[in-house]
Amino acid sequence: MVKLVSMDLDGTLLSTDKVMTKSFKPFVEKLKSKGIVPIVATGREYFMANKFLGNTDIDIVCNNGNVIRNNLTGKTSYVNPIDKKDVLEIMSFDKSDEIISTIHILRNDGVDLLYRLKENQDYNNSYVNVFAGRNLGVKDFLQYDGEPLSIVFAARYEVLKDFKEVLEEKIGDRFNIHLMEIVSKPYWMLEVLQKNGDKLFGVEKFIEDKNINLKNIISIGDDSNDKMLIENSGIGIAMKNGVNELKKVADIISDYDNDNDGAIKILDKVIFG
């Protein structure tokens, strides 16, 4: 019996051009009318997710499971920060001017992205600039206010591929490391999270007091940061446009991709027939 549906944003509910499917809000209302809880589980932080969800009354498991907030009110019900000592250790491996280094952070002053100032970097049209008005450049990460939620390095694929190998060798046993394509320059991001920083753990925290078991959950996504959740849900669905490593662990692959309303179509088919 399905009690909760978890939906990813990028590559799933959002088209390649970052447009939310028009079927989303009616489908959310349909789920609620049947007593099924809808949530969005995304790697995005709250304000970026809220931009796409608009006035939909839904809870968001954001920052890849490290924060849970209500989309309408912004009320935070869960935070899982990275230890600051771990942040400094991870950042100590960043020795390249080609890498843009950032920390997603929870603060009370409107800043939700810190980035390391490097003399030879241009941040125009970059990952940093996506958070214009909500970012803050710092010379180092020795002292800062707020609770760090995730660490993101942005660079060319070739640079991050090599950097990922270094991080996996040095700290891979203690952290989750995801290499993913993004829209903003330089087009690829390497995200580092603590081992209990994952969409799966965020969803588990959400259902903790709701008498819902993972076997009663349907989850859908498209990328490597969806893998643990898809693999452990009662029914895990990978998007047709998803990465191969996700498709290998999914129970179902959608009939259509994210540019053809693939997520809502397969969810509606699986749940309602």
Rank of each mutant, 00 (worst) to 15 (best):
L179N: 07
D112T: 08
L106M: 09
V138G: 06
L142F: 12
R116K: 15
L142Q: 08
N120R: 14
L106S: 03
K118G: 01
V159Q: 03
L113Y: 03
I105P: 06
E181N: 14
A132L: 13
E165R: 11
K161Y: 10
N129C: 13
N135A: 06
K118L: 06
F141G: 04
F131S: 06
K195G: 03
K118E: 04
V152M: 01
I171Y: 05
D112Q: 06
L193H: 14
K170G: 07
A155M: 06
A132Y: 12
V111C: 09
K139S: 14
L114E: 03
G146D: 02
L179T: 05
Y127E: 07
N196G: 06
D162K: 13
F163C: 04
I103G: 01
F141C: 03
S184F: 11
N135M: 06
F175Q: 04
K170Q: 15
D140G: 10
E119A: 15
V130S: 08
Q143N: 12
V138D: 11
D140S: 14
Y144T: 04
E165D: 13
Y157L: 13
R107D: 08
L193D: 04
S150Y: 01
A132I: 13
L142Y: 13
L179D: 07
L190Y: 07
K170H: 08
D173E: 15
K118T: 08
V166Q: 06
I151Y: 01
G172S: 07
Y115G: 08
Q121V: 11
M180P: 03
F163W: 03
I182G: 00
K164E: 15
L160T: 06
R134E: 09
D109M: 10
V130Q: 06
G133W: 07
S126G: 10
F163H: 10
G110T: 15
L142V: 11
K185F: 09
N196P: 09
V152Q: 00
H104Y: 13
T102Q: 04
G137S: 14
R174P: 03
H178C: 09
L167S: 03
L193E: 04
F131W: 13
I182D: 07
L160Q: 03
L160P: 00
V128K: 00
E181S: 11
S184T: 13
K170V: 09
S150D: 11
P148E: 02
K139G: 10
